[in-house]
Write a protein that binds this DNA or RNA. Structure first.
Length: 547
RNA sequence: GGCCUUGUGGUCAAGCGGUUAAGACGGCGCCCUCUCACGGCGCAAUCCCGGGUUCGAUUCCCGGCAAGGUCACCA
């Protein structure tokens, strides 16, 4: 069979000689040890935690080694394309501090572009044409129906499904038959003529998993679809080579197609990049665990964290603790160091699937929020409220000076002793609502209405806004004692039956009357911030009403 | 089902021939204390199973089992 003639018929016209592409995309001038890594999402617009997970690893490896991180868009399937997706991806990743050196919509050096696979059709076809001319790829005229019939038959016979060996009908089509099909205008795809044998097992060194066994590929996979666009497998091989990628860190769901990729690199005559297959993020679902799913798990979406107001650094710290087993220990020792100071290592990446633990993230978030200065906290809350907050939430961040006081005095911003009451901006802003809005009447009091009113009116009689904390609390104790409550906790604990309760119960009544809740920071401080008028109004208001 | 990967407390995990089997989150208890939060102290909880190899296996080998991934003209 004249393969050259066939190649010309299938992909007519002049294509650049392949050596020309080698010249256009030369090896990068980078110091030894520098890694070139990439992120290659498809433009569905849905960028998720799994993407971020692997993105952080790629980013750290590239930049720590003095290499490059680029963004390539795998848009070979129109069905997946969503308008504005690339911008959304870029923004989402930037929010979490992933910086690209090159790539789609990034600017900078475009030597290795274009970065959209749709714009690289000529390149792929040049390589496909060469493969056909070498007899290593062939046209396949099988219809979808024929293929699904084949699959059913194979399933029924308990054979391995797919297009391979004797099942690859079009693999050995006669020259005459091929041209007749072509003349008849039958649609076709181009398939790889695989030379692999599944009996051959090869050892492969995965950067994360270590030594693994790979079964040689024998599938005649589609490399060029009927619309003349390559499949992912083929496009990524050409691109990773031409873009001079040195290391591919990707999700372990790709491990199964590694044999195909290896054969592709070999048949194209490209040196292989190194691969590391990263474990996936799992979720407990009843008895079993499964991959985080787009439909069922809102926490998979990156927007979930932005909307809730997680600090981007907190999410990143959590990802890093999952990514490198020694990160957490390092971070405990260097809580304020830039994350870039941590020496990230591919060898420390986990081999096994990881259950996503929201509790852990929340703990990290509380700690991260507690590190912010009053001003940083204010800026974070403010910008979050502008983008995601309700009217009420935006109103609470409107008065900078007032909010700064609330934050500094009650949340401990700026002091050594920080409170860790919340993990997100949304919680923080709601948490301090009582500084802005008079709480609703509540029946949370654990004393009778008569007692409640007796406590409140007794307090009101002695209350003086100018009192300092000690004087103020001494007065609360007096109120307690006058109504049969223990003024000292020690005395109360020694003989609880001798009292109606303790000063703690009295303080609780005041606390609920002023803030609407039984759990708040220091009450005296709260009263100072609210001011005499508010305090009196709230206490008076709490005395009216409902019995 | 075939192929591949992975199995250390509830979760993330260190350890990889001899250890009281780290640490963190979560849980529980105590202390501090006007509540909560912080902080401090403490407790419970783990080497998937079965065979080898070895004086000795969580660690090495084999076999099970379980879980996950994947088997498209999707990426």
């Amino acid at each position: 069979m004249d393969y050259k003639k066939l190649a010309e018929r299938l992909l007519p016209g002049e294509y650049l000689p392949l050596e020309e592409y080698e010249r256009m995309y030369p090896p990068r001038a980078l110091p030894t040890g520098a890694e070139v890594t990439r992120l290659a999402p498809s433009p569905t617009g849905f960028i998720h935690l799994g993407n971020l997970f692997v993105a952080i690893a790629n980013e750290r490896i590239a930049h720590q080694s003095g290499g490059k991180l680029y963004l390539r868009i795998e848009d070979t399937d129109l069905k997946r394309k969503v308008d504005g997706a690339v911008e959304a991806v870029k923004r989402a990743l930037e929010y979490f501090d992933i910086r690209f050196d090159e790539g789609a919509e990034i600017g900078g050096d475009d030597t290795y572009g274009p970065w959209y696979q749709r714009q690289r059709g000529e390149i792929y076809r040049a390589y496909v044409k060469d493969l056909i001319a070498r007899g290593r790829a062939y046209p396949c005229f099988c219809t979808e129906e024929e293929l699904s019939e084949l699959r059913e038959q194979q399933t029924a016979e308990k054979k391995i499904t797919g297009y391979y060996g004797a099942y690859a009908k079009c693999r050995n089509l006669s020259e005459e038959k091929i041209y007749r099909n072509l003349d008849a205008g039958k649609p076709y795809v181009i398939r790889l003529r695989s030379m692999g044998d599944p009996e051959h097992k090869l050892r492969f060194r995965d950067e994360i998993k270590g030594e693994i066994t790979v079964t040689e590929n024998d599938q005649d996979v589609v490399i060029l679809k009927s619309d003349g666009i390559p499949t992912y497998h083929f496009a990524h091989a050409v691109d990773d080579h031409l873009m001079r990628t040195t290391l591919v860190i990707r999700g372990e769901e790709w491990l199964a197609s590694l044999p195909i990729h290896l054969e592709l690199f070999d048949v194209l005559g490209f040196p292989r990049p190194r691969y590391g297959h990263n474990c996936s993020l799992m979720k407990q679902d009843g008895e079993t665990r499964r991959k985080l799913s787009k439909r069922k798990d809102p926490e998979l979406s990156l927007e979930f964290y932005r909307k809730a107001g997680y600090l981007p650094r907190a999410v990143k710290v959590y990802m890093l603790t999952l990514l490198n087993s020694n990160f957490e220990e390092w971070y405990l020792k260097h809580p304020d160091a830039p994350l870039e100071d941590f020496s990230f290592s591919v060898r420390k990446m986990s081999k096994s699937g990881t259950l996503f633990d929201l509790d852990k993230l929340n703990d990290i978030s509380r700690n991260e929020l507690a590190k912010l200065s009053a001003e940083e906290m204010y800026d974070f809350l403010f910008s979050w409220a502008q983008e995601w907050g309700s009217d009420a939430q935006r109103a609470r961040v409107a008065n900078r000076e007032y909010l700064l006081r609330v934050l500094a005095l009650c949340m401990g911003t700026g002091s050594k002793k920080r409170r860790k009451d919340f993990e997100t901006a949304a919680q923080a802003i709601d948490h301090i609502a009582y500084f802005f809005e008079t709480p609703e009447q509540t029946d949370a009091y654990r004393v009778t209405a008569e007692m409640k009113n007796a406590i409140l009116s007794a307090f009101l009689q002695t209350y003086c806004a100018a009192d300092d904390a000690q004087v103020w609390f001494a007065k609360v104790k007096e109120v307690a004692a006058s109504l049969g409550f223990a003024a000292e906790m020690k005395e109360y604990r020694a003989a609880p039956e001798a009292y109606a309760g303790s000063v703690a119960d009295v303080a609780e009544v005041l606390r609920i009357a002023v803030t609407g809740g039984a759990n708040t920071p220091d009450l005296w401080t709260i009263m100072q911030i609210l001011g005499e008028e508010q305090v009196k109004a709230r206490i008076t208001g709490a005395m009216e009403d409902r019995s």
